Amino acid sequence: MAETTGGADKPPPKAALGRRTLLTYLVAAPTLTVATGLAPATAAAAAPRAVIAVDVGRPINPRGIEAQMVGGLTDAISTTLTAGLHIDKGLPLEGSYSQFHYARQRNSPTDVQVIVMPAHGEPGGAGELGVPAAVGAIANAYARATGTRPRSFPVDFPVDFEPFPR
């Protein structure tokens, strides 16, 4: 992983590195950089690179695993930084998808490398494996970039829209 990220302990200038490993019989280890000096809502757009290594035992469809990990990364960017529902009196304030701040293509890293480890043992499966480790990596990068360790998610969660009429 360190060779793939170009010296994982040396992020680019004015950037912070976050890593997280999820250990079960499946392993994912994303590494992301988040530029400093940005508001949390724009931090995902400044995550230019992500490297995910995944071990699923015997990969049957490596391209499908790659797609699953990239989707998990997008979910992780969303749930860590901006996406969530505001509930008031049991009802969501969001009335449309545009108000639910899920990551768009512009928020995703432009350089994503997924390393599917060589086959060994029985097939395992990827499922939602890409989400929990990527959430940890993004939260760690955010903490290093801002000096503030997030204690609740999403990190940036304002009501910056006209709530759905009741």
Rank of each mutant, 00 (worst) to 15 (best):
A2S: 13
A2N: 12
T4P: 05
G6D: 00
D9Y: 14
K10E: 13
P11I: 06
K14D: 15
L17H: 13
L17I: 14
L17C: 12
G18I: 11
R19E: 12
T21H: 09
L22T: 09
L22F: 11
L22D: 07
L23V: 14
T24P: 07
Y25V: 15
Y25H: 14
L26M: 14
V27R: 15
V27K: 15
P30F: 00
T31C: 10
L32M: 11
L32P: 01
A35F: 03
G37E: 00
P40C: 07
A41L: 02
A43G: 06
A43F: 05
A44M: 08
A45M: 12
A47W: 15
P48A: 10
A50W: 08
V51N: 12
G57L: 03
R58E: 11
R58M: 09
P59F: 03
N61R: 08
R63L: 10
R63W: 09
G64E: 08
M69K: 00
V70S: 05
V70N: 06
T74R: 14
T79A: 14
T80S: 09
A83N: 13
A83Q: 15
A83F: 13
L85G: 05
I87P: 00
D88P: 02
L93T: 04
E94P: 11
G95Q: 01
Y97M: 11
Y97V: 09
S98Y: 11
S98M: 10
Y102N: 04
A103T: 02
Q105T: 13
Q105V: 15
N107T: 07
S108V: 13
P109N: 03
D111Q: 10
D111R: 03
M117K: 11
P118T: 05
P123Q: 07
G124N: 07
G125V: 00
G125D: 03
G127I: 02
E128Q: 10
L129Q: 06
G130W: 01
G130I: 03
G130R: 07
V131R: 02
V131D: 02
A134Y: 01
A134M: 04
V135P: 02
G136C: 06
I138C: 05
A139G: 07
A141P: 04
A141Q: 05
A141H: 01
A145V: 00
A145W: 06
T146E: 04
G147Q: 01
G147Y: 00
P150V: 02
R151H: 15
F153R: 11
P154M: 04
V155R: 01
V155Q: 00
F157W: 06
P158H: 04
P158Q: 04
D160M: 01
F161S: 01
F161W: 05
E162T: 15
E162M: 11
P163M: 04
P163Y: 03
R166Q: 10
